Simulated scan of single mutants.
Amino acid sequence: MKSWTGSAGICINEQMEVLMVKSFDSKQWAIPSGGIEEGETPQECCVREVKEETGYDVKIIEQLMVKETVIQGIQVKTYYFRVDKIGLSSGINDPDNLIAEAEWKSISDLKILKHAYPEDLKLLLEQLDNSQNQIDTNTR
């Protein structure tokens, strides 16, 4: 069976919005992600893919999980990282020319959006909840 290994970055801003991307041929949104290149660590892949697809430089906060699944007969393994953005976006610069839009999505947006990976929604909402709790803790 063919296999593919990649990384995905969950980035949440100060307004409790998640950075999401959408492809040209799709109405579905997903977090920025892509395949690990030769010689790359999952962390390096995550930072590169988020930069290419959204224009944001990010730093890894923590590894959240590894999702293993089979999609159309391909064994897929994706490393999920929590990332923080550094500075402003320099614009989408996707060498694969797949990404049409990158936008910040609120919790209410996330609940009604079409998701490319619906199973990720629970993780996104958990991360938003964690972020909100950290803010609440820091402002008490």
Rank of each mutant, 00 (worst) to 15 (best):
I99V: 14
N97E: 14
P118N: 13
K122M: 11
K59N: 01
S26W: 03
E68R: 00
M1Y: 01
E103C: 12
Y80C: 07
W104T: 04
K27V: 05
H115I: 04
S90A: 14
A116F: 03
H115D: 14
C45V: 01
A30L: 07
E53H: 01
F81N: 00
D136T: 15
W104F: 05
C46D: 09
D57V: 08
Y56N: 08
L19S: 05
S23G: 11
M65G: 06
Q75F: 03
D109Y: 09
A30I: 02
C45G: 03
I99S: 07
K67T: 04
I12T: 13
D57L: 09
E37Q: 06
A102W: 02
Q72V: 01
T5F: 00
E53W: 00
M20L: 09
T69A: 09
K114F: 08
A8H: 02
V76I: 01
I112Q: 09
T78N: 04
S7W: 03
N13M: 14
M1L: 07
T137N: 10
A116D: 04
D129I: 07
K122Q: 12
I12R: 11
W4E: 15
D136G: 14
E103D: 13
Q127K: 06
Y80P: 03
W29C: 08
S108I: 05
D84T: 14
I60P: 02
I10S: 00
Q63H: 08
L110W: 12
Y80S: 03
N13C: 11
I71A: 10
I99A: 10
V21R: 00
E52W: 00
T139Q: 10
E103L: 13
L124P: 09
E62K: 05
G35R: 00
W29R: 12
L121S: 15
D57R: 04
D136A: 15
K22S: 03
N97M: 08
I135Q: 06
K27C: 01
I31C: 11
K67Y: 12
G87F: 07
A30D: 06
D129A: 13
P32L: 11
S131C: 10
S90R: 12
V66G: 05
G35L: 01
C11M: 13
S90N: 09
K105F: 15
D84Q: 14
A8T: 03
K77P: 02
P42K: 00
E17A: 07
G35T: 02
V83P: 02
Q75T: 07
S89H: 04
S3K: 09
V58H: 04
N138T: 10
G39P: 12
P42E: 02
K114S: 05
V83F: 15
W4P: 11
N133G: 09
L110C: 15
K2S: 03
P95A: 02
D129V: 14
S131K: 13
L128T: 12
E126D: 10
P32S: 15
N130Y: 15
I74Y: 01
G87W: 09
R48W: 00
K27L: 00
E37G: 01
A8E: 11
